[in-house]
Structure formats: C-alpha cells, structure tokens
Amino acid sequence: MERLVRGVRALPEGRPAWAPGVVVLAGRGPVVVAEAAAGWARRYRAYDPEADRGLELPRDQWEEMRTGTVFDLASLSKLFTAIAAVQQIERGHLVLSDQVNAYLPAFAPGISVRQLLTHTSGLAPELPFYAHRERSAQLDLLWREAAAPTGRPDTSYLYSDLNLISLQLILEQLTGRPLDALVHEGITGPLGMASTGYGPLAPPGVAATEDQRRPWAKADRGMICGEVHDENAWALGGVAGHAGLFSTAQDLAVLCRALLNGGAYGTARILGAGAVAALLDPPGLGFGIDQPYFMGELAGHGAAGHTGFTGTSLVLDRATDTFLILLANTVHPRRRTGGSAPRAAAATRLARAVVRAG
C-alpha cells in the first residue's frame, strides 16, 4: 500500500499537477488498508484566462486537504439515484421493464426503466437546462428530447445525464418524496453517512471547484465552494439525479463496504443481496463495469464503479473484496482535461498489492 499512497500524494506536486489536492481511501474486507490526503482543498481565489493560471489566495487562507474533506461528487451522485431506484424495484413498486411513458407521458414508446439505468435509452448526453431558470422551460427541453430521442433506444450505449434526471422524476412521482429525502431515508441515514448530502454547504472543510465563467463554462458563477459545480444540477435547484451530492472518502467507504457485504453494513441493510447483484452484475445498473481507463488492473473480472467530472472516482471489486476511492479537485481553479491515468494507476497499484497479499 505504500506505493499506492506515495503515488497519490505525488499528484498535487506534478508539473502540471493533476489536481491541487487529493484524498485516497482503499479497503479490503473490513479493513482500511490505505488512507491519505495531500495538497490543498482550496488554494485559488480566481482564474486568470490571459495568463492561463490560477490566482492564489493569501497563503494563510489556503485550506489543507484532509482525509475528511467534503467533495462535490459530480456524477458519482448517479450511483445513489440508481440505488434508490433499485430499492423501489426490490419493494415491487417499480419494474425494470416498465415503460417510462407510463410515468412520464411525454416519453416516446419503447424506452424502459432498464434503459435509463444502462444508458441505452437513446437520450442525448445533456441539454442546456442552465439556460432556463423556470422549471417549466427546463422540463419542456426534456420532453422534446424524450419524444424524439437523439439515438435509437436499446441499440447502443450513449451515456446521458438525462437518464438519471428522468429516473429522478419517476422516483419522485412514484413515492411522493423528493430525491434528497429518498437518498437520506434509504441510503445515507441508515448507513450513518452523516457527511453525505446535497448542498449548499458552508465552505470550510469543502474542496473548492471552479472559477466558473464563460466561455469555458456554461454559466458565470465565480469561484465555487459548497455549491454544486455542474451547471445543470445548479439550475435544477442543486438536487438532481445526475449530480449534486457532496461526500467524504470515509462516507463513501461505508457505501462500498455495504455493497460488498451484499447490501448490509453493521445492523443496517439498504438492499438485499439479489438487488446488489442486479446493480453490479454486467452490464450494471448505474454502475460502469470493467472500465480499465479508470479501474486499471482492477478491471477484468467484474469490478464496478464510476467517475465524476470534478475529479472523483469509486471502484469496488467483489472478486477480491476490495474498494478504492480517489477524490480530487481537478477543476480547481478551472476545468481541464486531466485524464484518468492517475485513477487507473492507483487502481493498478491496489490490484497488484492484493495479488501479493494473496
């Protein structure tokens, strides 16, 4: 595990650095085998586009990255929406083969709940909800796409935020509860994930994201810390099926452990073993399966996980009973294409350590 920790700690020191700060937490069975933080949760006050560099805060205002730092999870939020959906399926309130237009009549026939969860609905990757502040105008965008999807349903994989936003609408209609309540009551509350929830949050202890301005961003919001980074999730009120959750590596470790335990953690059970298998067996419901670009050598025998645009990632591997959480603020002070090579390298180091440990 020393190589894993050493490699992660070096990430903020690169030229260029992959991220200002990073947290890693890895576990096998009931044991946390590696946990470390490096760099800075908040270092910049703004981004200078002419000089192409961050403008630093006064040195005494830099906030050190800690293992308990709270991160904007970005698309890792999708995993919670998927779990909430599978909970309703397990209870018999929702069926994977259900037609979406039974709940959302604007949808074209032939799109199922399963296709939303497996990104095979044909819906476009995203829509400019951020350009509209009125809920009715935002929904009109979705209804137009849903009536005539960009792709043909069930013919190919097309990753789309709209799938999980649509699933959120179904869950809220089905239960009469907002998504944030469903996530708290069904997942984070029972598991004791007290540091996990939707924003806004007070900035201290939260990793900063971006000096969000056009033309590189889709909205002019300035330096963001404690509010959701994703412009569409922000426009939708901060609680969205595809983004909006904040959490810590320690809380995510609890979720990983519960899933690896067949849905239980301590005295709490959020899913049955069969429901967990539905989530994690190929092709996965909400979870990506065996994706080497961020799973490295953990991929290959059913590893499941996801990444988030802000620099977050999670991998769990039932074959070796291991998990890896890597959280970084790669978009601080502005979004860049940092790639997933550091994620894959960390996962490979964990995979090789597990092999050596037998």
Rank of each mutant, 00 (worst) to 15 (best):
F71L: 10
D72E: 04
D72Q: 02
L73I: 02
A74L: 05
S75W: 00
S75Q: 09
S75H: 00
L76N: 03
L76G: 06
K78F: 04
F80A: 11
F80T: 09
F80M: 11
T81I: 09
T81V: 13
A82G: 08
A82E: 14
I83L: 14
I83G: 10
A84H: 08
A85M: 12
A85C: 14
V86F: 10
Q87M: 08
Q88N: 10
Q88L: 12
Q88D: 14
R91Y: 04
H93P: 01
H93N: 15
S97C: 12
S97T: 15
D98M: 07
Q99W: 04
Q99C: 12
V100Y: 10
Y103L: 02
Y103W: 13
Y103R: 03
L104H: 06
L104T: 05
F107E: 04
P109E: 07
G110K: 11
G110C: 09
S112M: 10
S112V: 09
V113L: 12
V113K: 01
R114K: 10
Q115N: 06
Q115L: 07
L116S: 02
L116A: 01
L116F: 07
L117R: 08
L117Q: 11
T118N: 10
H119V: 12
H119C: 05
S121W: 01
L123Y: 00
A124V: 00
A124N: 09
P125R: 03
P125E: 05
E126Q: 04
E126A: 14
L127S: 11
L127H: 04
P128K: 05
P128V: 04
P128A: 01
Y130F: 14
H132A: 10
R133T: 13
R133H: 14
R133F: 13
E134P: 05
R135W: 15
R135L: 13
S136T: 14
A137F: 01
A137K: 14
L139T: 08
L139I: 13
D140M: 03
L141E: 04
E145W: 00
